[in-house]
Design a protein around this nucleic acid. Structure first.
Lengths: 176, 176
DNA sequence: TTGATCTATATCGGGCCAATATAGACTGCG
DNA sequence: CGCAGTCTATATTGGCCCGATATAGATCAA
């Protein structure tokens, strides 16, 4: 999902500045499904504006930094729906933790334990966020997506708790 | 996990050409955890060579394209372990399908069904691959990583099968 | 025999991230 | 009261990486 499409999707729900789009990608219910940085959001909004898919109004506030509030246009709405009707980009699951675990035999026992602890804590966090998001009123599509995330991260957490002992046994044996 | 580190990890297990590294990233047990393209692998190997972390031997084969076989050096092995000892990059789970589902209310009924079908089939594939990988003899670290993947994708598949009806009800209602 | 597929290396444009710069407003703490 | 830290807000840059493309001989099936 390229950043232009992400911006269009978020503007579908409400007008926003570039900064607010970033916040929604990070904190809103989008956090676990897509990513976008300022370095891509601002150029994306520029290009969307040039292409007539969004419109800008400048809110020149006295004694505050100016805001550029973006709204999606009719053409933008059509373009967004067209993007969802066409083939979706492949999922990208980059999972450095799992990659690292494949090389557990090269690492000292306590490093493995540390990585397992950190990753478990991180997954717990993610799950908490998704549960909070699930508690808020949502459309059915949003509810479905949130539930999908909960299912995936819940399973990961269960696996970590049930199977970490297998790895710790290995490194304990290697250390003998 | 940057491509240089991925290359080092794979070369830890066996010497390989750039082409073979790509194949292992795509087909080996790494497939679901990391990604790398030729456009990043070849430059990465060049830089690793310059930094003395890998060595090359050219196999000039008559009547076959030449091969450049890369081996990891002692310094490379140390650098790889150092990378795994330091803080790991964040997971990156880009999930266009879940993002799209959040906008189910904007899409026609049959498109939702089509996306659910495609994504279910794709997840089934992934799971089959992971089960095949799990059947092969592996180190405990590899076994753990494979199991983690199976847990995650299995949960996703279960969720899709159990909850797709909720979305299909929505769109059916919207169509009334 | 001819087209497809496989091995193998390499490059390029463009997309994107992480870091950084700038700047005024607000908040809390001593 | 001052000042440090945080928050809103926009923007740029270097560098990493992907996807597409080019090249080229080998193998294999129709």
């Amino acid at each position: 999902m390229d950043v232009r499409t992400i911006c269009l999707g978020i503007l579908t729900r409400a007008d926003a500045t570039g900064y607010e789009i970033k916040k929604r990608v990070e904190e809103g219910g989008y956090r676990h499904f897509v990513e976008a940085s300022f370095g891509s959001i601002y150029p994306a909004l520029d290009k969307l504006t040039k292409d007539g898919l969004v419109s800008v109004r400048a809110e020149v506030q006295e004694k505050k930094p100016n805001r550029k509030v973006y709204s999606i246009t009719k053409a933008g709405r059509s373009a967004f729906i067209a993007a969802l009707m066409g083939p979706l980009p492949q999922d990208c699951h980059r999972w450095p933790f799992a990659f690292a675990m494949k090389f557990a035999d090269l690492l000292p026992e306590q490093r493995i334990a540390q990585m397992l602890d950190a990753y478990t804590a991180q997954t717990e966090n993610t799950l908490t966020q998704l549960q909070q998001a699930g508690a808020k009123p949502q459309s059915r599509g949003e509810h479905f997506a949130t539930g999908l995330g909960r299912a995936a991260y819940g399973a990961i957490l269960d696996y970590l708790r049930e199977h970490r002992v297998e790895l710790e046994v290995q490194t304990a044996e290697a250390a003998e």
